[in-house]
């Protein structure tokens, strides 16, 4: 069924978008990530402009992260203090990200920036996850017990000043790296139209050494807040959020996520990470190929609005 998108200004097949929302929702539920890094490229692929795609996907991620955050809240798997400190960085990062997005859009370099960021970020993170996943699998095959995280070890991060106690995570940690990570995730998320959970979760675990029990829930809270804010800022500054598109994506996304979460529980952790790494890497490679190969059409047109 064709439906006309009022902001994207083009008709799309409603069931196609709904199916895409469900598929991405399935993946996001399975791996515990927002799925923006899959959704935005898919929307661009069906002909929606990158600006509308990035802006509308923010609201889709806000919806699915609220669902996630609520269920973690019930299980008391969220550290409110940690979430709050992350957020204070995240809010500033998001505002900076939307400002850069607006600037790049007027310079005509937005599409390139989105593509280059995807290549750099997804290839790196995907590659690292894949590497780590393969290592863990080989380790397990040799019959060795899984490597334990040295929870007591103190890196340079733990020597920084302005320490604060995070009760639920049982940590005593400087707020500087926490705010910095929040800032980075908010910034990257607003520019690229991703929640950034696939970046945030490894950072929290490996850099901040947050216990796994509170990591995902707290990450969901940050994603929820930054994406809510990104939606609002994109709506106010760029007028590029498409309500109809966003609603279809949300409905598909939250439904798919439930089935994904159930499927995810049947797969072992290492395999899950390996699969996610492979997925992230392949999206990154796809963007890289597009940048390097000579495009069939060298010219692009964009409407810049009537000058008075």
């Amino acid at each position: 069924m064709q439906i006309f998108l009022p902001i994207a200004d083009l008709p799309v097949n409603m069931f196609l978008i709904l199916a895409m929302g469900m598929a991405v929702g399935f993946v996001s539920g399975m791996f515990g990530v927002g799925g923006g890094f899959l959704m935005t490229p898919l929307l661009i692929f069906v002909g929606i402009s990158p600006a509308v795609a990035v802006a509308s996907v923010s609201s889709h991620i806000a919806a699915s992260s609220l669902t996630g955050a609520l269920s973690y809240w019930r299980r008391r798997a969220i550290d409110p203090a940690l979430a709050f400190v992350l957020l204070s960085g995240g809010v500033v990062g998001t505002a900076l990200g939307v400002a850069l997005f607006t600037l790049l859009r007027s310079l005509g370099q937005l599409d390139l920036t989105i593509a280059v960021s995807y290549v750099a970020l997804l290839s790196t993170v995907g590659g690292l996850m894949l590497w780590e996943g393969i290592g863990a699998l080989r380790h397990a095959r040799r019959g060795l017990p899984p490597k334990l995280r040295r929870s007591g070890s103190h890196g340079w991060i733990h020597g920084l000043p302005l320490k604060m106690r995070f009760k639920r995570s049982k940590m005593y940690l400087s707020v500087i790296p926490v705010i910095a990570i929040g800032l980075l995730i908010g910034f990257v998320g607003a520019v690229m139209g991703i929640g950034g959970a696939f970046l945030l979760i490894p950072m929290m675990i490996y850099i901040l050494r947050v216990p796994t029990s509170t990591t995902i829930g707290t990450a969901q809270v940050l994603t929820l807040a930054t994406m809510t804010m990104a939606t609002l800022l994109h709506a106010v500054t760029n007028h590029q959020v498409d309500a109809v598109l966003a609603l279809i994506l949300m409905i598909g996304g939250v439904t798919g996520a439930q089935f994904g979460a159930r499927a995810g529980q049947r797969i072992r952790g290492e395999q899950l990470r390996l699969l996610l790494g492979l997925l992230i890497l392949s999206v990154g490679i796809r963007f890289a190929v597009e940048l390097v190969i000579q495009p069939q059409e060298l010219f692009t047109i964009r409407e810049i609005g009537t000058t008075p």
Partner: peptide
């Protein structure tokens, strides 16, 4: 979306939060 951008943005956010809450 053009003329009442803030109101529009808030509506979208409300829509997202409602959808997310309903799903949970």
């Amino acid at each position: 979306a053009r003329q009442r951008a803030l109101f529009y943005g808030l509506t979208i956010v409300a829509m997202a939060l409602t959808t997310g809450w309903l799903a949970s």
